[in-house]
Design a protein around this nucleic acid. Structure first.
Lengths: 339, 339
DNA sequence: CTGTTAGCGCATTCAG
DNA sequence: CTGAATGCGCTAACAG
């Protein structure tokens, strides 16, 4: 059994290549009966349709959309927020019969896959900044999520306003506030920001959130002391636990913890409870993202819910649409027992 | 600025297309000086190399390897074992300058991507069994991990023997044994197996492990009562917690818990401790997989370590090699405080 | 070292 | 509905 190509199949079925092609791609170009006959004959032969690589070369589109994660696959895969986003993406992609190519934001060559995909959905600024330049130059469609690229459509929430509201909801005028921030500076370990230069000031959601927190604090004339602002490189338990422990050891001890992710907030609460600190009496905590685990935890967490699966669906729709205007998605502040 | 193709670039640089092609693909076919000149000129023009889709059509290989997960991408989220495997895969793939296309085992059309990839690494039997048939028919290379496909190379550990040894290490002659199994039957909820038909008897690692457990039990003339064998659909905390609670409520209460994943074992230990059951005095627990979290937990867990990142690397090497013989990887039984 | 040529497998036109 | 023709962008072989 030699290679099954459109041409070879056409010959064995005794019809023209165009007819086979039409049977698969343009049902309106031939009678239902013939189409049925051809399709079943192909299935019989083991021919599953035109070669996608050739099709892609010919038509210029492959039906594959690349999602560029901000970091490595392993990291993303362990982050409930990212995976919820991916869930929405795959769901919406499926509706359009499109496929997903996951790509790591820490890889070097975007062009290794660039010719195979119809475009890019970029979830967070890629860790490897060289990718940003390549994306900027790409002739294909690029949609950014949680950050912006000049001239490209984007999907975001209003991080500054959301952070502001969440902070306003927990802070009182006599509070001591500490912030557990995510990816604020260019360091791969957990540490106080102090005077380290803030990273990538413009587009980072972390800085927009920080702005929001500080706006709320300013309204109470509270100032954020440098050692009360911590940088956490990744939203995971180990990093967060260390940061929480450090911050809770400060004197005076913070009475409010503003956390840039729910995972961080949960770790911080665990740590606080273990130290015998009462929540919310002695310490109020607010998170960001909205993950289900916070509802099962006791005390339940006050947080900004951003419905990442909906965001994923919206991202795909924005990617597919011709509209290039930036899109702001709704979020919701949900108060729990932690404030 | 029109399209940058190999031909157009060749014309503007005043050399032949073959020379451009060689500059990118076969450095030995032209002088270093010329190559340098061409490469920098291309960079200048914004031409990043030959179109990969065309290259793939022409050469028949794309440099992309598909990894088919047993289930959806989200499933992987909660599974540190799978992500450790992927970590090894990406690492080894990178060494060979290959790229990864993650694909869900619950999707329908394998052929949507089949023409774009050089082959498939299949991590666990795909949930959608139709994919298995398609894989069996594929002319491309297929490597299976943690299960077998007739005539295809595979990477496994000896699950039966590993389970046997782990059980032998904890069981004494007067013990009451319960088993928390993973994907034993075709049910999406946690429940005792009872007389439900075992699923996919041949190839499933779960059944190989069950065989091993039972061989160990047989050596002590212990019989496994039907309601002491539980099915858990996915290795996550919620399911495991429920199963553990149910099993610990049985009368007589088990004194040994054989768990088919570390995540399950950890959940079970948490549940037991919460019930005031002393480990290992009143209950001995053994897990499977070997994840770092078990080392941080107290009591530390006895388990079969299978080094999933190494397994990922081995999978890629086996995929790339011409050798089609099945490969058995080493594992290691590590005893902790839980037995 | 270079230029030419023939496809890789297909979609699309166009005349019949 | 068919059959032939063209080219998507490229590589490999060959003759120079």
């Amino acid at each position: 059994m030699s290679k099954l190509t459109l041409k070879s199949v056409a010959k064995t079925l005794g019809v023209s290549t165009a007819t086979i092609s039409n049977a698969f791609n343009r049902p309106d170009q031939l009678s239902v009966a013939l189409r049925e006959k051809i399709l079943s004959a192909c299935a019989e032969l083991g021919y599953f349709g035109p070669n996608k690589a050739a099709q892609s070369l010919r038509t210029g589109s492959s039906g594959i959309v690349a999602v560029i994660l901000s970091d490595s696959l392993e990291y993303m895969v362990s982050d409930p927020v990212a995976s919820q986003f991916l869930q929405g993406v795959t769901r919406e992609l499926e509706r359009h019969k499109l496929h997903l190519l996951l790509f790591s934001g820490s890889s070097a060559n975007l062009d290794a896959i660039s010719d195979f995909v119809d475009g890019f959905i970029c979830y967070g600024a890629p860790r490897n900044l060289a990718l940003i330049k390549q994306l900027a130059q790409s002739p294909k469609r690029v949609l950014t999520v949680d950050f912006d690229l000049p001239g490209r459509p984007s999907v975001n929430i209003d991080n500054e306003q959301a952070a502001y509201q969440s902070a306003k909801a927990v802070i009182n005028k006599d509070d001591t506030v500490a912030i557990l921030g995510l990816r604020l500076i260019d360091a791969s370990d957990t540490r106080p920001v102090l005077d380290a230069p803030l990273w990538d000031n413009q587009s980072s959601i972390a800085h927009r959130r920080l702005d929001g927190y500080q706006r709320a604090m300013a309204e109470y004339d509270l100032i954020l002391r440098p050692d009360y602002l911590w940088h956490i490189p990744e939203s995971n338990q180990q990093f967060a636990q260390y940061a929480a422990r450090s911050v809770l050891a400060l004197n005076p001890r913070p009475t409010v913890l503003l956390c840039m992710s729910d995972l961080i907030a949960l770790s911080a609460m665990r740590e606080a409870l273990q130290l015998g600190i009462a929540i919310p009496e002695q310490l109020k905590v607010v998170g960001f993202d909205g993950i289900d685990e916070t509802l099962r935890y006791h005390p339940t967490l006050s947080s900004v819910w951003q419905f990442s699966d909906v965001k994923g669906e919206a991202a795909v729709r924005a990617f597919l649409s011709a509209d290039n205007s930036p899109q702001l998605l709704p979020y919701q502040l949900k108060l729990g027992e932690s404030s």
